[in-house]
């Protein structure tokens, strides 16, 4: 009930605001006046952009949550585990080897790479004695660095840096009708995640615990990683990297509501969408008529929040 209230009171107004924010003059007044140009901009650009923001935001927040459950670590999300960078490498591979592939196939390749990168990350985690929970994101970030060094190397060799950069930086300004529909796929993944929510909660308690509760740990793991890879790939392919979203939202919601995913996942999805909307609207207004990509805005907010999480934890421990 309160969730519905949140959606009505926060998400819907934000979405409407997003529809009417931008360089072209689109407002209820111009629409009622029957301004054809305004209607065109609304249908071709603003509506797709707003939907894309909502879908990407909720998808990345949910993907972050699932990763945190599976890695059993609060600081993990697609951009601190090498997942996003692997998806980027996948995109580069497609652009180099089969540039003619349809977008959906590109996304699938990126998803396969994202999955492989995440598996590599988890394999490294299994091999090391985990002395500190902080080692997990540390290794993830470094792995991401190594993978993106490979990507940069080939991108540089084949003079693709610029087009790759356009793919990777989180920017919704180029989202138009016909260029965002992949994100519905990520939405489908989010729904599946909700249906399987209880399993992820149990898996988050650990392999032994999950097994003794009669859960097939490996298949939950496979499902979760599949969802994370698909969502990440879909978002990266259609809009670029949206950093730290999967870190901020799940942590805030978990502080307020705990970790029973069946209850919290809808909140996480709604809040993720709201946060991305806020950041994108801010990016559109702060320096109008120029746009600041949402990835940049989230980079500041996200890393600031990350620092807060780390240092707060520290002061509590001391």
């Amino acid at each position: 009930m309160r969730l519905l209230l949140f959606i009505l009171a926060v998400l819907v107004p934000l979405a409407i605001l997003s529809l009417f924010t931008g360089v072209s003059n689109v407002s209820p007044a111009t629409l009622f006046a029957g301004d054809a140009r305004a209607v065109m901009v609304l249908v071709e650009s603003r509506v797709p952009r707003t939907i894309a923001l909502i879908l990407a935001g909720s998808g990345m927040a949910v993907a972050g949550t699932i990763m945190q459950m599976l890695a059993r670590n609060r600081f993990v999300e697609p951009s601190t585990a090498g997942t996003v960078e692997s998806a980027g490498l996948g995109i580069l591979a497609v652009l180099l080897l089969a540039p003619g592939l349809p977008v959906f196939a590109k996304m699938l390749v990126a998803a396969v790479f994202a999955l492989a990168g995440t598996l590599l990350f988890l394999a490294i985690l299994r091999r090391i004695p985990l002395r500190s929970v902080l080692m997990v994101p540390l290794i993830g970030i470094m792995l991401g660095g190594v993978i993106s060094a490979i990507t940069t190397f080939f991108a540089y060799r084949y003079n693709m840096q610029q087009s790759l950069g356009a793919w990777m930086s989180g920017d919704f300004s180029a989202v138009l009708r016909g260029r965002y529909e992949l994100l519905w796929f990520s939405f489908a993944m989010t729904v599946i995640a909700y249906i399987a929510a209880d399993r992820f909660t149990v898996a988050g308690l650990g392999e032994d615990f999950a097994t003794s509760l009669g859960l097939k740990y490996t298949s939950v793991m496979a499902l979760g990683l599949g969802i994370v890879s698909m969502v990440t790939a879909a978002v990266v392919v259609s809009a670029g990297m949206v950093p730290f979203l999967g870190l901020i939202v799940p942590n805030v919601i978990s502080m307020i509501m705990g970790d029973a995913l069946r209850r919290t996942l809808p909140w996480i999805a709604a809040s993720g969408a709201a946060l991305v909307l806020v950041c994108d609207i801010a990016g559109r207004t702060i320096n109008a008529p120029y746009e600041i990509p949402v990835g940049t805005v989230l980079g500041i907010i996200g890393s600031g929040f990350f620092l807060y999480l780390l240092l707060r934890r520290q002061s509590r421990a001391a």
Binding site: S132, L134, L138, Y290, I292, S303, Q314
Partner: peptide, 25 residues
Amino acid sequence: LHLLMLVGIVFGVFFRSISGFLQRI
């Protein structure tokens, strides 16, 4: 030590993001 490293890395990201932001403005 791990905290320090992580804080340092995230500070790096933070600084770079603010730079990126200002460069856009």
